[in-house]
Design a protein around this nucleic acid. Structure first.
Lengths: 67, 67
DNA sequence: ACCTCATGTCAAACTCATTTTACATTCATA
DNA sequence: TATGAATGTAAAATGAGTTTGACATGAGGT
C-alpha cells in the first residue's frame, strides 16, 4: 500500500507532529505510515485525507498482490 | 463509519460468502462489517471497493465525532 | 416435514495498529 | 559551532480487526 502523505503534507507546510495533532494521533504514527511500516486504520485514513484535502482513493494506492 | 456494502452487494447478487471469498476473508468478517461491529482494515476496504466496483470514498462514509 | 442456503452470533486465539517513553540523527540558522 | 526543530527508531503495553469452529435462525423449494 503506497501513499503520498509526505509529499502532500510538505506541500501544505505541515510537520508530522502538526498533521498528527489534527488527526488525533501521535507523530510516531504519522511517521510510521509515511515510511510504510504499517497501514493506518480506515478511520485514520479518512482523517489524514480530510486534513490533507484529498480523497482516500487519491492518498493511498492499493495494488493486489502487493498489499 | 457508515458503509453501503450490503446494498451494493445485493445489487450485484453476491452472498456475503462470495464477496468474502473474492476479498480473501471469511464471511464472518464481511458480516461484521456490514453490521457495523467494526471497521475493516484499509487494505480490506480497498478490496471490498474493488470487487463492488466503487471507490473507497463512495463505499464508506466517515463523519468526524461519529467515528 | 425435510433440506439447503444465507445470515446472525459467540468465544478463544492471533495479528497488527497505536501509544508511551526514550534516545539518536539530520538540518537550518543564529 | 551550538541550539532548536523535525525526523527516525525501538521496546513494551494496549486495543481493534480477523480467523476458526460452532451453533441457531429464517426463507425457499421438494
Amino acid at each position: 500500500m503506497k501513499n503520498t502523505i509526505r509529499r502532500i503534507r510538505k506541500n501544505k507546510k505541515l510537520s508530522q507532529e502538526e498533521l498528527a495533532g489534527k488527526c488525533g494521533v501521535t507523530r510516531q504514527t504519522v511517521n510510521a505510515i509515511e515510511n510504510n511500516k504499517y497501514d493506518p486504520t480506515l478511520a485514520l485514513a479518512f482523517k489524514l485525507a480530510f486534513h490533507l484535502e484529498v480523497t482516500v482513493d487519491e492518498l493511498f494506492e492499493f495494488h493486489y498482490g502487493k498489499e
